[in-house]
Design a protein around this nucleic acid. Structure first.
Length: 220
DNA sequence: CACCAGGCAAGTA
DNA sequence: TACTTGCATGGT
């Protein structure tokens, strides 16, 4: 009977990544609204392209609830052009503001005062906000203990045998929720570290990528 | 030149 | 249910 070693705990992996990359200081953004808009704009897009758009919105003085509510969609699209999919994203930003204005009478404070599970469902009902964007909003703007799953999370943790590569979003999320303390700061940093790892080391298809920090613990 | 980037929705089979 | 495709600019 061969002994099967337990997998390295997620908390150990977190510590390993933190030692490797250090604090990521997420989410970059001055206000909750800026974080929310950034979450929409960064969909399938490099963050550097989002920074330009955020700067444009600030310069045009529309990065606030009233400004984004009133600005014509066409003008908004021009301001966020650098993020790609600009027509689509302009509509998505508009969709969020319409929701915020009608459901929570234009108050982020009231919105985040809502119960997390309820608010998550409401956000998912907005056209253009899927699970990753909704959870990013809840964690980084709302500071709720929600774990954000992205393509890197699935790729890395399926490659290392923690999940199947085609596991649905909520199943991957549960792995982290059930094996980590529900701590906002931890969830914040862990997701950011996973993105950093994905960007730097795990792009190759080879599952035995020797430079991967996770591999430094045997049998991970 | 090809490929990817902190996805999502709608359409097809 | 499980793929596929449109969306589109900017960096490497």
């Amino acid at each position: 009977m061969k002994k099967i070693k337990a997998k390295t705990s997620l908390l150990k992996i977190y510590k390993l990544l933190f030692d490797e990359f250090g604090p990521r200081h997420w989410w970059p953004g001055d206000t909750r609204l800026e974080i929310i808009i950034g979450a929409i704009l960064t969909q399938n897009t490099a963050w550097t392209n989002v920074e330009k758009a955020i700067k444009n919105l600030k310069k045009a003085r529309v990065l606030n609830i009233r400004g984004l509510s009133k600005i014509p969609k066409e003008r908004l699209a021009k301001l966020i052009k650098s993020t790609g999919y600009y027509n689509l994203k302009a509509q998505r930003v508009k969709n969020f503001l319409a929701f915020l204005n009608t459901r929570y009478s234009a108050s982020l404070k009231r919105m985040f005062g809502s119960e997390t599970r309820v608010l998550r469902e409401e956000l998912l009902n907005i056209k253009g906000i899927g699970p990753e964007t909704a959870d990013s909003i809840l964690l980084y703007a709302g500071e709720s203990p929600v774990f954000v799953v992205d393509a890197y999370t699935k790729r890395i943790f399926s490659r290392h045998g923690y999940i199947n590569k085609n596991s649905p979003y909520e199943e991957v999320q549960d792995l982290f929720l059930k094996n980590l303390p529900g701590n906002v700061k931890l969830f914040n940093e862990f997701h950011a570290l996973i993105v950093e790892l994905g960007k730097n080391l795990c792009r190759v298809k080879n599952p035995l990528c020797s430079r991967c920090p996770i591999r430094r613990i045997k049998n991970v």
